[in-house]
Design a protein around this nucleic acid. Structure first.
Lengths: 192, 192
DNA sequence: GTCTATAACGTGATAGAC
DNA sequence: GTCTATCACGTTATAGAC
């Protein structure tokens, strides 16, 4: 792996673990096994390197989510599969956590991928729910857009509760709770 | 207001806006209109001052929540009142945001009030839901503890979505979505 | 491309005058 | 109690050798 590559990967890890404000170029270099000169040769500075790291993480997050949504099955099964997917719960969402970083949110370039990724996720879940409604799997009274916002919020908030408790239990409970609530709005035409 | 008091209040604001890692003693002093000497006279250092600030914020958060839960009404009305309460949505939750701060979570003294406050909130909401179930307002199939975790997660996650979008809209949608889902599990003995 | 040296500035804290 | 001076260290970057 090239120096530039190792620098990006180290930055991704540190942004996840410590956020943008809490991450220094020095620590990035140390973890990447690269010197100052190498970093400033490949990247203009900390914001430039962070942008590369955030863009890659955002892309990866979309790909993982999309893989879950594209599988066959009812809307409820696809949402369940997405929510129950294996996750590093105690580390939280690498994109969602950046919303708490004032320096990220103050920089339009760094904020854009964060905004777009979470916006895309809500839209995508709303589409899945809309498809389920069209197929008669979901109650017509269920609004796809508000429900999608709720699903994404439970996920993001579940991470917060897990980190606070230093336990995955509240995350699992939050997911189970919203799936139980959703289940009451489903009918299963195939299974009767 | 005394210097010590102004220092605590400035710290509370800065922890909310910038987090612990992103807040320097110098900035706290500037905002409080106090010098270095004053701060280090009243507090042992940054962690000590932050602890005082976090404890006060945690206390305030509990008091506000409790005020919402103590009002008369059905469980659904009390939960709705709590979730619909006026909030500084784009600033997010002053306690929840600390879960993303690695330095806070690494310090047991600072972490404790964060953990206890969110744990208390889940317990308190579970109690309200349990009361509703006992009164026949809520479906017996609804588990109070998992549902409470979902409610708190929607709130915490709603803040994340709002900050990402720089808009309160996704927060409102997430709240509306979970209340709609909950509504399907309620019966209103009084209203028929 | 990668290294080391240097620098201007900020951080978190201490010391001691007043 | 509050002030200013000072300090060791870290941050973010630039310069220039190799």
């Amino acid at each position: 792996m090239s120096s530039a590559e190792r620098l990006i990967e180290s930055t991704r890890e540190l942004l996840w673990e410590r956020g943008y404000t809490g991450t220094s170029p020095k620590e990035i270099q140390r973890r990447a096994g690269a010197g100052q000169g190498s970093m400033y040769h490949h990247f203009a500075g900390k914001p430039d390197l962070a942008l590369a790291a955030i863009n890659r993480t955002a892309e990866e997050m979309r790909a993982k989510a999309e893989a879950g949504f594209t599988v066959p099955g009812t809307a409820m099964e696809r949402i369940t599969g997405y929510l129950r997917r294996e996750r590093d719960v105690l580390k939280g969402c690498p994109i969602g956590r950046l919303t708490q970083d004032p320096e990220v949110m103050a920089d339009p370039g760094l904020r854009a991928p964060v905004e777009q990724t979470l916006s895309w996720l809500r839209d995508r879940i709303a589409e899945v729910l809309e498809e389920g409604r069209e197929r008669g799997e979901l109650a017509p009274g269920l609004d796809p857009r508000t429900t999608a916002a709720t699903v994404v919020a439970v996920l993001q908030g579940g991470y917060v509760l897990a980190r606070a408790a230093e336990s995955t239990a509240p995350f699992e409970q939050a997911i189970t709770g919203v799936l139980d609530l959703l289940a009451a709005h489903t009918s299963r035409p195939a299974a009767g």
